[in-house]
Simulated assay, not measured.
Amino acid sequence: MKYPPRRAATCGCGYLAAFLTLLLVASLQIQYHHLKVDLGRSDFDAATATQRRREGGRRGGGSAGRWSRKTGAEGLPRGIVETSSDMYLRPLWDSAGAATKTSAKSKNDRYKALLAMAVGIEQMQNVDTMARKFLNESYTVMLFHYDGNVDGWRGLEWSDKAIHVLAPNQTKWWFAKRFLHPSVVAIYDFIFLWDEDLGVEKFDPRRYLDIMVSEGLEITQPALDPDLSTDIHHRITIRNKMTKVHRRVYDNRPSMNCSDDSKGPPCTGWVEGMAPVFSRAAWKCVWHLIQNDLIHGWGLDMKLGYCAQGDRAEKVGVIDSEYVVHQGIPSLGGPSHTSKIPRRSLDLRTQIRRKSSAELEKFKERWDKAVREDDEWLDPFEA
């Protein structure tokens, strides 16, 4: 008996074989593409490594002179990279005029300095006096407005020369962490991070910086006039009329016991957070010390000496010959100086005080935890 040919089965096997062949080809093409990309990356890495070695050879082979692409600018040619910024205002017109004149004038100064303050409209008159002193020396002034009022400052003749930043109810440490990154302020030799309630009648910023440089200081503050200041918390900040600079205080009280044997804060190597002045190198370290969420800055003053670029007992000091008056005027959460103190203001000040104290404890805990967990870090001031 004869049977008919079995065409259907043969046809189905052909379609299946063709599909599998196409799938295999597609898979091989995808693998080849990934391999090509990986090889390209390897070639690029090798090329950039070779270029770095060549650049190092041209500069003497030392690692200190090498330019690193690992800054987020890996995809850019070297010559186009700007690694820092400044606070010079650049007008929309006359590009060869005001901006150029400002830059040229600043280049002729002995130092470049930035005064940054958190301010409210209630202290405008006092801030006006402070800002004029710094602007007269061609220093930059940056105002952090915590009360939301920027327009109220427009009437001052120097207002358009200052940098204005607004964020309601924030402290100077909050502003500094977000707007004074070391790369942004790298052009400045010194950073003044001051409170708004300082009297500067007897203060000259240029002479102050001359003393800071001649004494080899990296972190300083002006001394406080004990006769006129209304709010002095620490004896080391009191002006010594017999000296130009002092780096330590002597106190025989059991709670302090500060002597020549004292090696750290608050007896030596310490300034208060009210009116600190930082060198460029010190600020690069201090910026990293400021915590994002601990905005009152309590506890920072006790650790600033770790950023002093050396022995804090020598590199940190209080400058006596250029002193200020601390007026002790409440700012954030405080009442207007022209009105009676309302109950709400008292409640806000109490809450701020409690939050500040809580942040102090958190900062201490974080420092202790960081020290425990970093096996490679050695405390340079450990007894």
Rank of each mutant, 00 (worst) to 15 (best):
A47T: 09
A26M: 11
I30A: 14
V141L: 07
A176G: 02
D227L: 10
T83E: 12
Y32F: 13
K241W: 08
R354Y: 07
A118T: 06
S183H: 10
W270S: 04
D128A: 14
A9V: 12
G317P: 00
W287S: 06
R280Q: 11
T243P: 04
N252D: 08
R366T: 07
L294E: 02
W194C: 08
I80P: 05
M302L: 13
C13Y: 09
D320H: 03
T350W: 09
S95K: 14
D86H: 15
L114F: 02
G334D: 07
T171S: 11
G199Q: 05
L135N: 00
L76K: 08
L76W: 06
S84T: 15
A96Y: 14
K284W: 08
P182V: 08
H337R: 14
G75C: 13
A162M: 05
P266M: 03
W367C: 04
C13P: 05
C11R: 15
V165L: 15
E157W: 08
Y88K: 09
H33I: 13
R178P: 05
F278W: 00
E314Q: 12
A383P: 15
S331N: 10
W173S: 03
D38G: 02
R372D: 01
W153V: 03
Q170F: 06
E137M: 06
D231H: 14
M302K: 09
T268F: 01
I295V: 15
D147C: 05
G57W: 12
E215S: 13
H181E: 11
S356D: 12
M302N: 08
L114I: 05
I329Y: 10
F278Q: 00
G199N: 02
